[in-house]
Amino acid sequence: MPARVSIFVTCIVDQLFPQVGMAMATVLERIGYTVEFPEAQTCCGQPAFNSGFRDEARTVARHTLAALENCEYVVVPSGSCAAMLSHHYADLFPASSQERAAAAALTPRVFEFSQFLTEVAKRKEVGAKFDGAVTYHDSCHALRELKIKDAPRRLLAAVQGLELREMDAAEECCGFGGTFSVKFAGVSGAMARTKLDSIVRTGASAVVSIDSSCLMQLQGAIARAGLPIRTLHLAEVLAGQ
């Protein structure tokens, strides 16, 4: 088992949900890893990439490739940002470029958090406790780009005291979509409310995801609707004892 892992916390966790990054570090340390935070990291560049600003995305990608160059494992508390690092960086650079080679070298070293716990650390559980019923929201990029479906569910189901309840629309998008959430605010809000209806039907007291951006969207809609439902990142649940 490698002793060291680097964490890429993503800009949204860094700025808005630092407790998620801390929780992820806590869990990784609890199962025996030394956690490093490469300080040059900022954002993966996905906002620019998804908005069509390829030059800006390339600039940020080059920076991040350099920042993570010497990391053996890069663990990310987001399926979306992990997919950007592992799948889309390569698309940004021409086939024979140095950056393409660097991106190709980074791809096998990037792991979304639940993926890392189950595939690299080979953990079925991490000694967590939680009191109550939760439902799990599949974030789109984790589900469809990284094919992550069972890992977070298995980890949740193994948490002592936690009851996992499936919602009928688990795989439906929450409606965030980066700048989509403000460019098409009405559509985005309507999508969030459809998702909320499905969450409410489970009777769970919290919705768990592996992407903080989805949780920000759901939290905003839950607060607006005045519902007594918490939004939790998987790391926060797994850090609980």
């Binding site: 700025q15 630092p18 959430s181 605010a185 009405g186 969030a192 969207q217 905003g220 607060a223």
Partner: peptide
């Protein structure tokens, strides 16, 4: 203001953390 206003039209705004992850770290 612009994007936050569009966000707020449908949802509550997230409360930014007092300190960033890198500060806490």
């Amino acid at each position: 203001l612009g994007p936050a206003g569009a966000w707020f039209s449908e949802r509550e705004l997230p409360v930014p953390a007092a300190r960033s992850f890198r500060e806490l770290w």
